[in-house]
Nucleic acid binder design. Structure first.
Length: 302
DNA sequence: TGCCAGGAAGCCG
DNA sequence: CGGCTTCATGGC
């Protein structure tokens, strides 16, 4: 992977089509986010690998992201995991050239892709985090979703204090599998969502559900079918997870309200478009529906 | 206050 | 499969 290392700093190469600033704007979209902290042009994020907690400070330099470890020197395995995490978080391994080629010929995507050139899907490398966040966000407004996540993380995640600031990592499925529904309902999760999240954690703890198993030799359609078979995961959540965790660029959460609102704005419609209308618009986006969706989400944060 | 929110399950035909 | 109803809880 051509990642240079020394004791404290790693350098991760970035593709040509990469804008750290655009990614920062997306990462900065909620003041309630407690899984990373942005200060100027630097991101601090706590990462867990096995029992190791690593506080990363990520900054940008030409052609690279730099990862500095603030709380001591990680193990060799920890450093490798951190570099892998950053590559997945910023989706650095996807070649965006075909997407930009396609977007240049699409009336909706053309201005957005040009305006936000170098933005990449900011993902959730951790499958449990991706699935739990998808379920948390179902059918509630994002502000409330962030409130729920914050309570969940601060109740069951791990943390360290550095420079008088607390940094959190998302809870592990191992801990959540042991919970009862009544552990989550006091923080305003609905009983049903609590069941879904604990159920997924239990499946992951038992080993029958994992990122590796999902990706192992299956096409996107098979993966979606497998995800939808999980209680609490419908088409929206399945495609959201495929897009944000499995790096499947053809994933398409077509029922997403944010996507609908973005299209309403871009097309200057009186009402949100119907699913049938979106399907017609998306004929231009084949293979890149996930990036089209993500850029449309980004267009809402002007 | 009523409608809405980055949906999904359950039921019925 | 496709449509309809119910669930659940705060934001604005």
């Amino acid at each position: 992977m051509d990642t240079k290392t020394n004791s404290h700093i790693m350098r991760v190469p970035v593709p040509v089509e990469f804008s750290f600033d655009e990614c920062l704007i997306f990462l900065n979209r909620s003041s309630q986010e407690n899984l990373h902290r942005i200060q100027g042009e630097r991101i601090r994020k706590l990462l867990r690998h096995e029992e190791e907690l690593m506080l990363m400070e990520i900054s940008s330099s030409p052609q690279h992201l730099n990862i500095e470890f603030l709380n001591g020197v990680p193990s060799e395995e920890g450093r490798t995991a951190a570099a892998q995490y950053v590559r997945e978080w910023f989706d650095l391994d996807t070649d965006l050239a075909p997407f930009y080629e396609l977007a240049a010929a699409d009336p909706i995507l053309q201005p957005i892709a040009r305006h936000h050139f170098g933005l990449r899907i900011l993902g959730f490398p951790d499958l449990f985090e991706a699935m739990a966040w998808a379920i948390t966000g179902q059918q509630i407004n994002l502000t409330f979703a962030y409130t729920l996540k914050k309570r969940f993380v601060e109740a069951y995640g791990k943390s360290i204090v550095y420079d008088n600031e607390t940094y959190w990592v998302f809870p592990s499925y191992r801990e959540i599998a042991a919970l009862e529904v009544s552990d989550l309902t006091p923080m305003q999760y609905s009983a049903r969502k609590a069941e879904y999240i604990i159920g997924i954690a239990t499946q992951m703890a038992s080993g029958i559900l994992s990122k590796e198993q999902l990706l192992n030799g299956k096409d996107a359609q098979a993966i979606e079918k497998e995800l939808v078979a999980i209680r609490g995961v419908g088409p929206w959540s399945a495609n959201y997870v495929m897009m944000k965790c499995l790096a499947i660029t053809s994933a398409f959460p077509i029922a997403d309200v944010g996507l609908h609102n973005a299209l309403k704005v871009q097309l200057e419609l009186e009402q949100k478009p119907t699913i049938a209308e979106i399907e017609r618009l998306a004929e231009n986006w084949k293979g890149w529906e996930a990036y089209a969706t993500f850029y449309l989400w980004r267009s809402l944060y002007e």
